[in-house]
């Protein structure tokens, strides 16, 4: 078994440990005998996104927003097409915001997103930051159980964002138990549309949340017809997850 992954803008959007998610995704596939081929795709490069099973878009510094937004005008339709054809996509931080309808920068400039999520983002001067704890949305919890993933019902992570994201039709990944989430107001965190996930939980999200990693992996595999995952020894991951969970509750 072999799946194809794409690291989108690895040179521009590589903020603070986000690449760890791709490492975790690949290792957890390899430990189950599934090979992952990772391609790096950056600005100016054309790519048939529909061929990828998993696309990762990390967070970025605001200085590169101009370049990425401009480049996404060209890539956007192909990303949308891929998601319609069940490609799994994970966008973090700024990589989440660019997937909505539009978002604003700190100085008030409005940028268009690709409109994958029915959501939009406004910047505010103060940052929402700190450790965060979510309760995973019920349907995702059931799915984790069904595919044989690690039986965790919460997500832990770290957020640090000035953007406030408001969801339209898009559903959140989970409810905020501790922390800020999308906007600090409505207790939602992240967005889900088909196999596309967006979140403000930056850094090694999938390392602290192996059940989420497995859910993404199972969905990527389901394009090939497979759904049930072999279980792994996740003692360390569960320990790290629970230490943070206990601290926040």
């Amino acid at each position: 078994m072999r799946i194809r992954a794409c690291h989108l803008y690895p040179d521009l959007f590589n903020l603070y440990g986000d690449r760890g998610n791709l490492i975790v995704f690949c290792r957890r596939a390899e430990w189950r005998g599934i090979q992952v081929q990772v391609d790096e795709v950056s600005f100016g490069q054309k790519s048939p996104f529909i061929d990828y099973d998993f696309i990762f878009l990390g967070g970025g510094a605001e200085q590169y927003v101009d370049i990425v937004v401009k480049d996404l005008q060209g890539k956007g339709p192909y990303l949308l097409e891929a998601v319609e054809k069940e490609t799994v996509l994970l966008g973090i931080g700024l990589g989440f915001q660019v997937l909505g309808h539009h978002f604003s920068a700190q100085n008030g400039t409005m940028f268009p997103g690709i409109g994958l999520f029915d959501a939009h983002t406004k910047a505010r001067p103060d940052r929402l930051k700190g450790n965060i704890l979510l309760e995973v949305a019920a349907d995702l919890q059931e799915e984790v159980e069904r595919i044989g993933g690690v039986p965790l019902t919460t997500i832990v992570g770290f957020e640090n964002h000035s953007g406030r994201t408001f969801l339209g039709e898009a559903k959140p990944i989970g409810n905020v138990l501790k922390g800020w989430g999308n906007n600090g107001e409505d207790k939602t965190e992240g967005a889900v549309y088909k196999n596309a996930f967006g979140t403000y939980l930056h850094g090694p999200l999938l390392a602290q949340n192996p059940h989420l990693a497995d859910l993404l992996l199972a969905r990527a595999l389901s394009r090939k017809g497979e759904v049930k995952l072999d279980s792994l020894n996740d003692e360390l991951e569960i320990y790290a997850h629970n230490v943070m969970k206990k601290r926040l509750l």
Binding site: G17, D18, G20, G130, F158, G203, A207
Partner: peptide, 9 residues
């Protein structure tokens, strides 16, 4: 630093 994400860099 409250955020230990840098361990992954």
């Amino acid at each position: 630093g409250r955020d230990v994400s840098w361990l992954w860099d």
